[in-house]
Amino acid sequence: MNTKELRVFAEEIRVETLKEFMNLGFGHVGGSMSIVETLAVLYGKEMHIDPKNPQMEDRDRLVISKGHAGPALYATLALKGYFPLEVLLTLNQGGTILPSHCDRLKTPGVDMTTGSLGQGMSTACGIALGNKIKKSDKYTYLILGDGECNEGQVWEGAMFASHQKLDNLIIFVDYNKLQLDGTTEDILNLGDMVDKFASFGCHTVKVNGHDIAAIEEAITNAKNTKGVPSVIVLDTIKGNGCPLCLSQFPNNHHLKFKPEDMVESVKLAEETLAKVKEEA
């Protein structure tokens, strides 16, 4: 996909994700909205995958360590054809293949089980290291939450990835500046995320996490950087593109709402989708 097509794909993911939540009446809307563009670039362009063969051994893999953003990934996977779009409406229902947090055993296309914050950092390191041992040229992508970076395990992993020269590991930090209890600044100040990861030896850049072209460029640069892991700090807005979610700022980590309250947000997302389709 080219950049314009990726914009369309991103808006499609946004629409389908919001529909999942609208059907359910609650969920982690904010943190799903902030990674939509990144998912579009990964699954629309960067990742070597086969939706018909989700377990293909030699594939690129994604670990969404902030596992509560599963619904955005599910929409992405459904749009890619891993499973029918109708399945999205079963989110969180008993017996579903789409649980609130990512589960590699339940959902075709989910590469790692996450939900206990910090742990995806290490499992992604293990996948990248395993690929090095196996002499595979495939990439491992990791999406961390910014609040998640409160966890010490993230920094254990950063030190490890750098020491092991995991240049096949590309880490995104969804820097939306909010965590469950409030702003990251108020709850546990992260300091300068770029400086922090850079000081751990990672090639680190900060980009607008809602700018498709900027994400594409950052990934290209990351792939051209050898000998060290790359970190792309995504400057994002929690709930981006969802007025209902933005109206709850700063307490929009998990929303509970009447389905009709989400109608306007879905409509707006659909209008945006129609607009970018026209431009594409």
Binding site: D111, M112, Q119, S122, C125, G126, L129, G130, Q153, F160
Partner: peptide, 17 residues
């Protein structure tokens, strides 16, 4: 860093090690 070590082990397993 025992926590990271156990997570890395899980990741290694995920690619067949």
């Amino acid at each position: 860093q025992e926590a990271n070590m156990i997570g890395v082990a899980a990741g290694l397993s995920a690619v067949g090690m």
